[in-house]
């Protein structure tokens, strides 16, 4: 009998503790890789055990679509880990709560929204690269390309795959970087030439690199993080950073306007720019927002940081629609698969 009472008491106490621990719950939308999410939440809860994170995760395109669809009825409290170009879109729809997190001044300026107070802060950069399958290339007698322009050489005809910018964020950052580097006219000229060599455009950004890893194609235009992972899996890949410079986007954090849990949201965003958080991002990404934190990531190309272009996110966001329309007009109507 006594035991039973004890048991009941413990149970009640347990309930209490559990209740007090989860003082707030945050619905967090994210496009961070599924395998990293658990770690992120655990790290955050070490510092703030009273805030429970409910993840809603999907690919960049879908999460962006979801957020826009919910514009008038937002379900998310915080966005943690979504492309800055997407966040700019939300910003211009007035969906984000401006907030300067504690310690924002410590971050690299590139990683902070230009408004004051900023509406979003960056976490890490996600950089374009070329995945090159050395085994398949050797079979075909292909040399490794060094520059973007190399990719337009006739010898690579039918041996390059890149993501479709209409469906892939990676594809879009490639296109927008070319337009920024080569100028509007030069950029389109370059893409015209490149198009002649492209075997096909994929829906997702990581697929070209995975296809290169699997030998389905010798050259896949993708992003460095994906290449490094495939290489770690044992794929005969070389990750090439074209000499002209590479486009990039960043994963960023913002508070959704109208959240019921503004304080908890601020706590999370404050933490998301701390040194510890940036160290956490560093396990996957070689470039992070907090200067001096980054340690080299295995299989990451060394010269990546210096090759990142000075990306004009505003240009990318405001011209996105026009660029995609032009791209679609030029390249998407060629229906035949070329090989």
């Amino acid at each position: 009998m006594l035991q039973l009472k004890k048991l009941a008491l413990t149970a009640i106490a347990g309930l209490f503790v559990a209740n007090s621990v989860a003082a707030a719950e945050l619905t967090v939308y994210t496009a961070v890789e599924a395998e990293d999410l658990k770690r992120y939440a655990e790290e955050f809860n070490k510092a703030h055990p009273d805030i429970k994170i409910n993840w809603v995760r999907d690919s960049t395109g879908i999460i962006t679509a979801k957020l826009l669809a919910e514009k008038n009825n937002p379900q998310a409290d915080v966005i943690w880990g979504l492309a800055a170009t997407s966040l700019l879109l939300m910003k211009s729809e007035g969906m984000l709560e401006p907030y300067a997190p504690k310690g924002v001044e410590n971050l690299d300026k590139k990683f902070i929204d230009k408004s004051t107070p900023p509406t979003w802060t960056g976490m890490d950069a996600w950089v374009a690269s070329v995945c090159f399958n050395t085994v398949e290339a050797e079979k075909l007698g292909l040399k490794a390309p060094k520059t973007w322009k190399d990719l337009t050489k006739p010898e690579y005809k039918g041996h390059v795959i890149m993501p479709n910018p209409n469906s892939s964020g990676t594809g879009f950052l490639d296109v927008s970087s070319w337009l920024q580097m080569f100028g509007e006219e030069g950029g389109w000229q370059y893409m015209d030439a490149l198009h002649e060599n492209i075997a096909r455009y994929t829906h997702s950004g990581s697929k070209p690199c995975k296809l290169a890893a699997a030998g389905e194609i010798p050259i896949g235009v993708s992003f460095a993080f994906r290449g490094a992972k495939s290489k770690a899996d044992g794929a005969p890949l070389e990750i090439i950073v074209p000499e002209e410079g590479v486009g990039w986007d960043m994963e960023a954090t913002a508070i959704v306007a109208g959240t019921d849990n503004l304080d908890a949201a601020k706590t999370l965003v404050d933490w998301s720019i701390t040194k510890e958080a940036n160290e956490m991002y560093n396990t996957g990404y070689a470039v992070v927002a907090y200067p001096g934190v980054a340690k080299p990531v295995k299989f990451f190309p060394d010269n990546l940081l210096e090759k990142m272009i000075d990306n004009d996110f505003e240009f990318a966001a405001n011209n996105r629609k026009a660029i995609l329309e032009e791209w679609q007009k030029r390249y998407d109507s060629k229906s035949e698969a070329k090989s």
Binding site: A69, S168, L324
Partner: peptide, 25 residues
């Protein structure tokens, strides 16, 4: 067609591309 269609566009895939890729509902 999503898996193996390559550059060959079909109506059903277009819906997906418009909605998921371009958020053009």
């Amino acid at each position: 067609p999503k898996v193996i269609g390559g550059q060959y566009n079909m109506l059903a895939v277009d819906i997906y591309k418009q909605v998921i890729g371009q958020q053009n509902f």
